[in-house]
Design a binder for these strands. Structure first.
Length: 739
DNA sequence: GAGCACTGC
């Protein structure tokens, strides 16, 4: 039953007066862009308006970038609607499908809808698709846009709604055939913006932490009560700033009589994603009377986490951002200036419950020089998985796929070459049967490739499923800051080390975690990340399920139990954990079927390694004749100082990923033999002979023989311009980061 | 002897 109180609340939302107008617009047009600030009620109300006024509509899909949002919104809406969650209104997120055959309104993550599209590109179950939070421009929403535009041509009766914050409106509308737009006012309080008098953002990079602390002190001394949110870039920054503020405040309290004009006491909290104490919900509580709360946070506070009661925001002007370099195939995490849109969003965090103030540590001129919008993720990520999904949907010509902001073609070719090396596509860019099978897994294509070879060639799929699950979760080792604790953590880690490297070490950890009954305290004592292990456990179950459904056998390469080797080895070498329980060879060979692409060779005299031949990387490295030295990460079992193996015994390593900081560090490495991968290496030589961009196939299929993959000159020019602009922005960002 | 922002299938 619908609660009259809830009905009243719905009618008080800023969107309610626009109800009829919205319904009419949706009736008249199948494409529509709706903008509105936070608090307008668009996410919860518009889908209900459709539900109530379009009885012929079978299923409405609403996508969200985050799991939590999909879940909580669905819950709220089902309450408003007076039905049980999972009946008429439900949600679908990975590991948790709360829908039924009765469901007519389904909230989900954009990733879930995208996966659904790989098997049903027409999205034939849906009559309405709503893409919410479109301004966030995740890779998934951007791909959905291109896909929806295509689907719309095949199914013009499909209704598509794009919902976004009040930015980018024209861009979205232009993309969807110049469709109409509507703006819904939000419920936000005024935020007064204060720029620094003269600080240029280019000179701020080395000083923003202390300036942020100074500004925090200033607010504490001069401003009326109200909590403070400070945006910094990472864990180190945040911990330092927290310490500094507390120290400075102590000094000041002793020396300055003006201290505490308005507020006497303070509490200071850090906030970042890997913080285990997210469960210590104190951050979200109201501080005691006469105490001011300070929260030093990463970008997590810009979109994902809302802290109530914030009246003041301090914006450093920087963010730590991932950017993938297709030339080297490396991901770098760089501290870069934010965009104007991000600055606005940060300031807005001060006006959620009352009027507020934002202090920007940079001057107005610097603000005006910032990019208007954050560069969409699709222009700074590896597109490997995306390209494979698109191929599976039957889209051959990826370079000319209609992206709202096209990625650098280099990113696309880089992905295509890697897919060729994984044998997922052939020399003309067509999906192979192996590639087709790889798309059944919700994983990075490298990992999908390994899973298939473990089941079909090497008979060790039980173990590989575990290793793959661990690799797709977060970092398992927790590194404490405190020196003494660090020693304990290192000792604990040694217990799991395997002499072949980190992949077998991950297997050891997972099995030990299972043997202890998935105990959280057991993890804490060993400084293992419980959250990572529990995700791995879920992923493992999901993968096993998928394999069984697709006829891929789960086979173990565990040795016979009657051997006493295991016990003997453990006694002899106390630091090793179950060194002999498995034969590592098939496991490593199976990993090498994909990770030969990440092969490195040791320098004959120095403790560093070099890329042996990795697609794009080997080319640019060879032509510059300046090889990039790769180091083994200190957390690795094979790190020489950990004394598990001698570095001289390592000749060839495969690595899972490189993190680039001051040095290029290989994370998660294992020792392999070259003859395992020798045959595969010939695929590198075939690369130059391929036409992977799919233009050839696409043109043949559409009856054209033109070598040019794009025939409309206007469209082509627009695309080239967009790409050039993106490249220039990327260069500027890099230059800025290196200053 | 190094240090990793945030999501998601």
């Amino acid at each position: 039953m619908v609660d009259p109180k809830i009905q009243k609340q719905r009618e008080l939302l800023p969107i309610f007066p626009y109800r009829q107008q919205i319904i009419d617009a949706i009736k008249k047009k199948n494409l529509l862009v709706i903008t509105g600030e936070t608090g307008s009620g668009k996410t919860t109300q518009i889908p209900q308006y459709i539900l109530e006024n379009f009885p012929e509509c079978r299923l409405i899909g609403v996508t969200q970038p985050r799991r939590i949002a999909a879940m909580t919104v669905a819950k709220r809406v089902s309450e408003e609607h007076g039905t049980r969650l999972g009946n008429e209104i439900g949600y679908s997120i990975r590991f948790d499908d709360c829908t039924s055959t009765k469901t007519r309104l389904r909230y989900m993550t954009d990733g879930v809808l995208l996966r659904e599209a790989t098997t049903d590109p027409k999205l034939s179950n849906y009559d309405v698709i709503i893409v919410d939070e479109a301004h966030e421009r995740t890779v998934e929403t951007d791909v959905l846009f291109g896909l929806l535009k295509q689907t719309y041509r095949m199914r013009p009766e499909l209704k598509i709604l794009v919902m976004s914050a009040t930015l980018n409106v024209e861009k979205f509308s232009d993309f969807f055939n110049k469709c109409p737009t509507m703006d819904i006012p939000g419920r936000m309080y005024h935020v007064e913006i204060n720029h620094h008098r003269d600080a240029k953002i280019s000179s701020l990079k080395s000083t923003y932490i202390e300036r942020a602390v100074d500004t925090a002190l200033f607010i504490h001394q001069e401003e009326p009560p109200g909590d403070v949110l400070v945006f910094l870039t990472g864990q180190n920054d945040i911990e330092r700033a927290c310490r500094d503020l507390e120290r400075e405040a102590r000094h000041l309290r002793r020396s300055d009589i003006r201290y505490g004009k308005h507020v006497k006491a303070m509490v200071v909290y850090p906030l970042y994603a890997s913080l285990e104490t997210m469960e210590q919900r104190a951050i979200f509580d109201e501080p005691p009377e006469g105490t001011r709360k300070f929260v030093f946070a990463t970008n997590i506070a810009q979109t994902s986490v809302t802290i109530p009661g914030i009246k003041y925001v301090i914006d450093s002007g920087f963010v730590k951002q991932k950017s993938y370099d297709p030339n080297t195939g490396m991901d770098a995490l760089l501290v870069v200036p934010i965009s104007q849109a991000a600055a606005t969003q940060r300031a807005g965090r001060a006006g959620r419950t009352a009027p507020g103030k934002a202090y920007r540590l940079y001057c107005r001129e610097s603000y005006e020089q910032m990019d208007e919008e954050t560069i969409p993720e699709i222009q700074r990520s590896s597109l490997l998985g995306t390209v494979l999904s698109l191929k599976k949907m039957g889209i051959q010509d990826i370079i000319n796929f209609e992206f709202i902001d096209p990625p650098d073609p280099l990113l696309v070719t880089n992905a295509l070459r890697q897919l060729f090396l994984l044998e997922a596509i052939d020399a003309s860019g067509r999906l192979t049967s192996l590639g087709d099978l790889m798309t059944i897994f919700p994983l990075n294509p490298f990992l999908s490739r390994v899973l298939i070879s473990s089941a079909k060639e090497f008979n060790c799929s039980r173990e590989i499923v575990i290793i793959v699950s661990m690799l797709s979760a977060e970092e398992v080792f927790h590194s404490p800051k405190n020196e003494e604790k660090q020693m304990i953590a290192e000792e604990a880690r040694k217990q799991f080390y395997h002499s072949s490297g980190d992949h077998m070490t991950l297997l050891n950890i997972f099995e030990a975690y299972r043997d202890c009954g998935h105990d959280i305290d057991w993890c804490r004592e060993r400084y293992l990340n419980h959250r990572a292990l529990s995700i791995a456990k879920n992923v493992r179950e999901q993968i096993q399920d998928i394999m069984e459904k697709n006829g891929l056998p789960i086979i173990s390469c565990r040795r016979n139990e009657n051997s006493n080797d295991e016990e003997r080895t453990r006694k002899k070498r106390k630091t090793y954990y179950r060194e002999t329980k498995y034969d590592p060879e098939p496991i490593l060979q199976s990993l090498a079927t994909a990770y030969y692409i990440h092969l490195s060779k040791r320098h004959p005299h120095r403790p560093v390694f070099y890329h042996y031949a990795s697609g794009a990387a080997s080319e640019s490295v060879d032509s510059n004749s300046s090889l990039l030295a790769l180091h083994i990460s200190p957390t690795s079992a094979l790190y020489p100082e950990n004394k598990v193996v001698k570095i001289e015994s390592l000749d060839w390593l495969i690595y899972h990923a490189i993190v680039y900081t001051n040095k290029a560090l290989m994370k998660t490495v294992s020792k392999i033999r070259y003859n395992w991968v020798e045959e595969k290496m010939s695929l590198f030589k075939q690369l130059p002979k391929t036409r992977l961009d799919g233009s050839e196939v696409a043109n043949k299929e559409s009856g054209q023989n033109d070598d040019m993959s794009e025939n409309d000159p206007v469209k082509k020019n627009r695309r080239i311009e967009a790409i050039a602009a993106a490249k220039e922005r990327a260069l500027r960002r890099r230059a800025m980061a290196q200053e």
